[in-house]
Nucleic acid binder design. Structure first.
Lengths: 142, 142
DNA sequence: GTAATTGCAAAGCTTTTGCAATTTA
DNA sequence: TAAATTGCAAAAGCTTTGCAATTAC
């Protein structure tokens, strides 16, 4: 299950002085192989198939590290345990109605919105086409 | 701090066979008086100023009841305790790129998105003007 | 009067953390 | 070899729940 994506993520770990351990590789590969979202416990179960000694705490710590890298984000709605998602790289646009400034952002919040809409309404938004109107930081405070 | 909004919420409780207790009134009024979001613990502190004996567990139960009414929704990102928000009644539009159907929805997920964007980018989206493109439930499954 | 609700205390669950042993670079 | 990481166990923190007493309708 070794992939270029997994190698890339592990390389990014090394870039910031962290280490590419066997556990982290297995966890990363499981994350990439898995679909849309997963909990720490589910991920641990999957990882244990290949690396039985891995501990839930290690999974939590690895998820945290990957989050700090921006590779993952967490989503916890309601009562259930936190769901972890791979950060998508799609871009969205924030258009200021006052000054006209257009901000290009890539924010996990949009993926969260998409997930909610799919669940609640069965609607699959196309996040490549999102442009929100509003007021930018400068114009909102003035 | 009695307001028409508070009366309305308590009336909605009664409509479903629940009771309008003093505790619930005080909690609801504190929620409405307060700004954007609040945690159960913060809310309890505020409520205690008027009703010292109120218990955190009662606040949690009341929040849950109001959530079931759709008056509130919870947002828990990251490590902090859950933030509770009043559900906004703004409408958004979901436009199907395949069949052209337009769905009008009022979904707390949009308010969550707005909160995230404000925090991350200082951008204040105007949720009255949101229209998302994508595929509706029928066209997405086909 | 009956059913819902409350306060309290205790339990539940997810997530985090201290530490000694191990492993990576 | 020095610093990072792991497994384990224990703790932490938020939230929920059982129960007897109280309160709303």
């Amino acid at each position: 299950m070794r992939t270029a994506e997994a190698d890339d993520l592990l390389a990014r770990l090394k870039d910031v002085g962290l280490r590419a351990t066997t556990q982290r590789r297995v966890i990363v590969e499981a994350l990439l192989a898995q679909g849309d979202h997963i909990t720490a416990e589910e991920l641990t179960e999957i990882v244990k198939a290949r690396y039985p000694e891995v501990h839930l705490a290690t999974v939590y710590r690895t998820l945290e590290v990957l989050e700090s890298l921006g590779a993952l984000y967490r989503l916890s709605l309601g009562h259930e345990p936190t769901q972890w998602h791979l950060t998508e790289r799609a871009h969205q646009h924030l258009v200021c109605d006052v000054c006209g400034r257009v901000q290009e952002v890539s924010d996990p919040a949009f993926a969260r919105l998409a997930a909610s809409l799919m669940k609640a309404h069965g609607f699959h938004p196309d996040l490549r086409h999102v442009a929100l109107r509003g007021r930018c930081s400068g114009c909102a405070s003035g």
